Amino acid sequence: MLSKTDLNKLDVINKMVLVEQELNDQFQLEDKTIQNSSLLSLGLNRAKFINSRITQTIVQDCYLRNATFQNVDLTGTKFINCNLEKASFRVCNLRYTEFSKCKINLQEILSNLPTESNLKINILKQLLINQTEMSEKKSCDKLNVLIAEEERVNSKNKFLCLNSYYSNIGTLDRVNSFFSYIMQTISGFVWGYGLSLWKLFRFAVLTVIFFAVIISFLDLEYIDKINNNKVSSLEIHNALFLSFLVFSGSGYGEFLPNGFMSTITFVIESGLGIIFLGFFVSAVYRRIAR
């Protein structure tokens, strides 16, 4: 068992336990290696870790609120119940680093994510678990979006074989990745992966306008119930109102589809309206449940 004073006397710490309760704001670790060790119950407010390696190590119950990590390799290190709320991470290696029940400076950690997509997804999911444990709802939403975006990028890299990691995947896996990429892209655009009501309403408005243009400018046949005659195009304001009625499932108003093309157009738009309703209920439920 070592003290912090003993720690600075050694260049490499391997399979050691460092335990010390008192606070020491002036602690600095530079050009040192700590590996396969445990740092327990340390007061390290404003401590500085510079050009060092702290790998495969457990850091538990440590106060690191204003600590600085500069050019530190933290591969495989696990922080448990630590205060890192205002800690800064500059050019650090966070591959396989874990945080559990920690107060963290999320933005600082996100600026040091690994470049490999699969490793980035791994640490983002781990951060999501930590923020869920800490009841940080806003950051959980942010992390959910980042994970979804990175999974979309990962699917694209996989089906295009954009790096050597995916060079040996089979055709079936590439096809599955292609469809995953398409579905993830649609999900992001339509409703922000289930987290953006604004995007969902934008999708509804764009859909109504798109079908209003089709109704107004294409030569589709309709029956005017009021005048009891056939029409092949509608004024844009009538087309917008009709499109809204069809999308919302309220009916057809004074115009009925007449013929295959106008019928199939209305069926498609009403189907999208049903999908919108399902997404809307799901999004609202997510907001209430969280």
Rank of each mutant, 00 (worst) to 15 (best):
K4S: 01
F178K: 10
S248F: 09
Y166I: 12
I268C: 04
Q184N: 09
F241R: 12
Y193E: 00
N176M: 12
E136S: 09
A283R: 01
V175H: 09
N258S: 14
F178V: 05
R65K: 14
D224T: 14
Q131A: 08
S3C: 02
N122Y: 13
L106F: 02
R46G: 08
L119V: 14
E85P: 06
K156R: 11
D141Q: 04
L272F: 12
D6R: 08
I54Y: 08
K225C: 15
G278I: 04
S41W: 05
L200K: 07
L200N: 04
N8H: 06
S155Y: 06
S196F: 04
F210Y: 13
K142W: 03
N71S: 14
K15W: 08
M16A: 10
T132R: 11
G259W: 08
S100L: 05
L29D: 02
N36W: 13
R287G: 01
N83R: 08
L256Y: 13
L110N: 03
V175C: 13
G251T: 12
D11F: 10
Y166H: 11
L172T: 14
T97V: 13
L7H: 00
G251V: 15
K156I: 12
A212E: 04
T263H: 09
F99V: 03
Y166G: 04
Q131W: 05
L64W: 03
L2S: 03
L113W: 01
Q35H: 14
S117C: 11
G43W: 02
A47Q: 06
S3H: 00
F247A: 08
L200E: 02
L242M: 15
K138T: 02
I109W: 00
V12N: 06
L23V: 10
Q70N: 14
L172D: 13
S262L: 05
S216V: 14
F244Y: 09
G271C: 08
N81P: 07
S139M: 05
D11L: 11
D73M: 07
F211V: 10
Q56T: 10
S135C: 09
L18V: 14
F266C: 13
I121D: 03
S139A: 09
D25G: 14
S270N: 09
S187T: 10
S196V: 02
F159N: 01
N157E: 15
I226S: 13
S262C: 06
N83V: 07
Y222P: 01
R286S: 05
M261T: 13
V284E: 02
V145Q: 03
Q21R: 11
C82Q: 04
E269P: 05
I147C: 00
K103T: 05
I169F: 03
L106C: 00
D224E: 12
M1P: 07
K4P: 00
N130E: 04
I236C: 08
G43P: 01
Q107C: 08
S216I: 15
Q60F: 02
L220K: 04
G194N: 01
I264H: 07
L200P: 01
N258R: 02
I236L: 15
S282W: 04
S100E: 07
S250D: 05
G76P: 01
N105E: 06
S52G: 06
G251I: 11
E151W: 02
S233T: 15
R90I: 15
V208M: 07
K199I: 08
L256N: 06
A289P: 02
S232K: 15
F260A: 11
V246L: 11
